[in-house]
Write a protein that binds this DNA or RNA. Structure first.
Length: 908
RNA sequence: GCCGAGGUGGCGAAAUUGGCAGACGCGUACGCUUUAGGAGCGUAUGGGGUAAAACCCUUGGAGGUUCGAUUCCUCUCCUCGGCACCA
């Protein structure tokens, strides 16, 4: 018997598949497009087991769909710009481009080992000018439409990487690349107005969107839509205060001071709780609030400035860890527009400049406000009760802050209203008096895309001293990234040091001008790569519109759970922008999204070189073969599982493949040597008694059904289990055949044990039919493409031999793929071109079932019965059982519950 | 604190209109067969209990609904992921 040597089988078939060009799809002529997408990998160096998990396992899905008759497009590319390349290059004293190109070459070769159906004619590599030209083009379109703009705000600054980061790249106050504490700096940079799409990016509720709930909820939370109101508080000046006196109610219009010395200033405050406005007894401004320069009285300015200085020096993390509230009184007062009361204005860390208006009012129904007020002895006034009776308790006991909605008290004309009604009524009044209005606030901020680094897409702008920021003309794209640049981070963009590159003429006035030295965030590049995959060589436009219409939206998109907030949301934003450009005519770019899990090292920790727990896929391929890795990764657990790599587990599936191999060897050699009657057993002879055996048929159809449905539902692990089960069953038949034969032999002739293995093969003929074996191989083919191809071709050889002898012709199973390439394919019937087996639902249903018998809900017996047994029949059988009788005795069942083909339960 | 996903044998895990808990695999034990390799084949394997049965217990914990709950409801504990002074 030939031995199963995966390396031999796999290299041979990979070569053959490549030569014949069986894989890849003609995007133009495809009739049944299916776009299978996996997040493009970063060109980081070596392919690791995570890449296998992402690509090789999804390849199972792709091959399955292909056998089902779809034209599956499964492209690969590389996310190649960005900090890791730059940092690695600095460390190794290389150029980022050289480092990246080398990695791409290595990874491309490693990808081949997977045996995937990737389309190498449609590769997108983001660091090539032919790709990033279109980044620049998109940027210019955004500029035209006011979606891209230059702005200056407090931004996330990473002191180690020396660049600005987007909010989504800050993880718990730290840089997502290097982990350094993020500082807030006021920096002028390019933004994308993603907030224009905030409302559209909100996922609709309870939709039949096939995206994970965690992504939908996560994005909606991040967008953070809040409905509330903006309220204007007039600031009372020192002069006024002197007249009005402390604590005295300021009558309406007293703040309407028109004289020169009393400039009127307004503080805008956002709140979602207008219902507590009557209880607003102080205002809190963020330390960076710009209005402070206008309202702080001179005698307070030292203290205020000191506090501003201290909080400006704090990083985000420090601010967060300093949970204890701090702040200082500004010396200014403002008027609560609804109550007319004069209240103090404070500044404090806990008011954030980045949210709402950077100012809030403090009241007795917010824990933070209460904590702050208590510390600084600011009076509080509860204005909400849960019910009338609780009022006194709430006022006296500020330990328990009531933050829910309730009934208003001490709130003038609004007293007695519920929060919900009062909110509307108060906003209405504020609007009438022009002291406020309803407003919707989002947590989502505009996306900062400027990076003060080298390895990225140059922003296509020319800064002219006369004309300002002038967009590069479309015909001058791409603005190529120069190679010879000192790219070590110095706090200013490295491109600024490339003097020759920087110097240009202004396209508008023709005068001397300079290029924009900043580059784009890498997330810009990968926000639209899946469009480019469709048309990577297009020189006139980012992609062909008609082609996108045909292939988009992506049918299924696999990727990591960590891309919930950044990548997948940005891609949605780009898609909506493309829709506005009339490039696409749909709203969402992927019909279905599946998050994959993470494979940890054998020690249950994240794989890392420093830990020494990295499983090298190339090594595993050598020992067990790609088929085993694919199968193991599919089998390890649910696809979103986070689980360690188990060296024993891969040996388990390797063992399984060896058994498949063994079965194949036995079965084919048998058919080869068997006579005509035997060879024709199986599907070609429906009268064959073996085929007719209901149990065999049932197992086959049941397995087809299970594997089909499980792959469709991304439940690869149970699909593999079903195949294992069927193999166990089939080998059980072989085993039984062997036993029968040995018994027969010893009975007939007492031949001493010289039976060699090829001899015993006779018995298989009567066990495993050709149909069973073929179907088994087809079902296994997406998981283990190489070994199944090998065994399949072996089988075909035998078929053609019998054909040469003038026996019946094999039916042409090549009817699914009509591509001309396939027609002249030398291995004219690769197993991967076969149609996916179909099952008969009736046969998938078991004929014989085990009926469970319960007494009072407790299992007491199991009865093997025919499916479809009637209740009367079941009752009769069950009552005849001793085990049941023991529990029922002569009691009369009060009630009998009968579930068809499942159980019968006697209640006594 | 908020949002999301989870908690089932020694381990990875199965089990959905509520109906046999633990499929499949790993590991372990015993046996066989070869061998001496860490290979192959077979049997057993949730816990207790028994000579063997019978029987009892068991899906993080406590209640509840039901003839019947891993599954539904209430409360609670824990783990993982995300967000977080968001007014």
């Amino acid at each position: 018997m030939k031995k199963y040597i995966p390396a031999e089988v796999e290299t041979r078939w990979q070569k053959k598949w490549k030569e014949t060009g069986l894989y890849g799809v003609d995007l133009k002529s495809a009739k049944t497009p299916f776009y299978l997408l996996v997040e493009l990998p970063y060109s980081s160096g070596d392919l690791h087991i995570g890449h296998w998990f992402a690509f090789a396992v999804t390849d199972i899905f792709g091959r399955f769909k292909r056998m089902q008759g779809f034209d599956v497009f499964f492209p690969v590319g590389f996310d190649a710009f960005g900090l890791p390349a730059e940092n690695a290059a600095i460390k190794r004293k290389l150029h980022p481009q050289d480092w990246t190109f080398k990695n791409i070459e290595t990874m491309t070769n490693q990808f081949q080992l997977m045996g995937g159906i990737f389309d190498w004619d449609h590769v997108a590599i983001t660091c090539l000018p032919e790709y990033y030209k279109w980044n620049q083009w998109i940027f210019l379109k955004m500029l035209e439409r006011g979606i891209a703009y230059r702005g200056k705000t407090l931004s996330n600054w990473c002191p180690v990487d020396k660049t600005v980061l987007a909010d989504e790249q800050v993880i718990s106050g730290k840089c997502d690349r290097c982990g350094a504490d993020i500082e807030l700096k006021e920096i002028s940079q390019w933004f994308l107005k993603i907030t224009d799409y905030a409302e559209e990016l909100l996922w609709p509720g309870s939709e039949e969107v096939d995206w994970p709930k965690s992504v939908i909820e996560g994005q909606n939370n991040w967008i953070g839509k809040r409905e509330g109101a903006v309220i204007r508080f007039e600031v009372v000046t020192e002069g006024q205060r002197d007249k009005a006196g402390e604590g005295i109610e300021v009558k309406e219009n007293t703040s309407k001071v028109g004289s020169d010395s009393f400039e009127v200033r307004t503080i805008e405050v956002f709140t979602t709780r207008v219902d507590t406005l009557f209880g607003a007894t102080f205002l809190v401004l963020a330390p960076e609030h710009p209005i402070l320069t206008k309202i702080v009285p001179k005698n307070n300015s030292n203290e205020v400035e000191r506090y501003q200085f201290i909080s400006a020096g704090k990083s985000q993390v420090e601010r967060k860890e300093m949970r204890e509230k701090t702040g200082v009184f500004t010396g200014a007062y403002a008027i609560n527009p609804i109550s007319g009361k004069e209240i103090p204005v404070w500044i404090a860390d806990y008011a954030l400049m980045g949210y709402g208006t950077g100012a809030l009012f403090g009241d007795a129904h917010d824990e933070r406000d209460v904590e702050f007020a208590k510390k600084y002895k600011i009076p509080l006034k509860p204005t909400l009760v849960t019910g009338k009776k609780d009022r006194d308790k709430l006022i006296l006991n500020l330990e328990e802050v009531f933050t829910g909605e309730g009934i208003l008290v001490d709130s003038g004309e609004f007293s007695g209203m519920t929060s919900a009604i009062a909110k509307k009524a108060i906003v209405k009044k504020l609007e009438e008096e022009k002291t406020g209005q309803a407003q919707i606030q989002y947590h989502l901020h505009d996306w900062s895309i400027s990076r003060q680094r080298y390895w990225g897409t140059p922003i296509p702008i020319i800064n002219c001293p006369k004309c300002g920021a002038v967009p590069v003309d479309e015909k001058d794209l791409p603005v190529e990234l120069p190679y010879d640049v000192d790219f070590t981070p110095q706090g200013k963009p490295p491109l600024a040091t490339a003097e020759a590159w920087m110097k240009v003429k202004c396209p508008k006035c023709g005068g001397d001008a300079q290029r924009e030295p900043e580059t784009m965030d890498g997330f810009f590049d990968n926000s639209w790569y899946f469009y480019r995959y469709l048309d990577p060589k297009n020189e006139r436009e980012p992609f062909d519109k008609l082609r996108a219409q045909k292939w988009m939206p992506v049918d299924i998109y696999f990727g990591g759970a960590e891309h919930t907030l950044g990548h997948t949301m940005y891609s949605r934003f780009f898609t909506k922008f493309f829709r506005d450009l009339d490039l696409v005519d749909f709203e969402e770019y992927a019909k279905r999204r599946v998050n994959h899990g993470v494979i940890l090292g054998p020690d249950s920790h994240r794989m890392s070189k420093s830990r020494g727990n990295v499983v090298n896929p190339d090594e595993e391929v050598k020992s067990y073969g790609a088929d085993s890795i694919r199968l193991y990764l599919a089998f390890i657990g649910p696809y979103d599982l986070v689980a360690p790599w188990d060296p024993g587990g891969i040996r388990g599936v390797y063992h399984f493949l060896q058994r498949v191999w063994g079965l194949g060897e036995k079965v084919t050699s048998d058919w080869l040597s068997g006579d005509q009657v035997r060879r024709s057993s199986g599907e070609k002879n429906p009268d064959n008694p073996i085929t007719q055996q209901p149990e065999n048929l049932h197992m086959m159809h049941k397995t087809i059904k299970k594997v089909t449905e499980d792959i469709e539902n991304i439940k690869f692990n149970t699909a593999v289990a079903a195949l294992m089960e069927w193999l166990n069953y089939l080998s059980g038949k072989v085993h039984a055949g062997k036993v029968t034969k040995v018994a027969k032999e010893s009975k007939e002739s007492k031949v001493s044990g010289t039976s060699d293995s090829s001899d015993s093969s006779d018995s298989f003929v009567t066990s495993v039919t050709r149909l069973e074996y073929e179907v088994f191989l087809k079902l296994l083919a997406p998981f283990a493409p190489h070994i199944t191809e090998e065994l399949w071709q072996e089988l075909q050889k035998h078929e053609s031999r019998s054909m040469n002898h003038g026996k019946e012709k094999p039916k042409n199973l090549n009817n699914v793929f009509t591509r001309p390439k396939v027609a002249k394919f030398i291995i004219h019937d690769s197993i991967h071109s076969q149609p996916w087996p179909k099952y008969d639902p009736a046969l998938a249903q078991a004929k014989k079932i085990t009926l469970v018998v319960q007494v009072n809900g407790k299992l007491r017996d199991r009865l093997p019965v025919e499916a479809g047994i009637s209740q009367q029949e079941a009752e009769k059988l069950a009552l005849a059982s001793d085990k049941v009788q023991r529990w029922i005795g002569d009691a009369n069942p009060r009630k009998v519950i009968f579930v068809n083909d499942r159980l019968i339960n006697f209640v006594i």
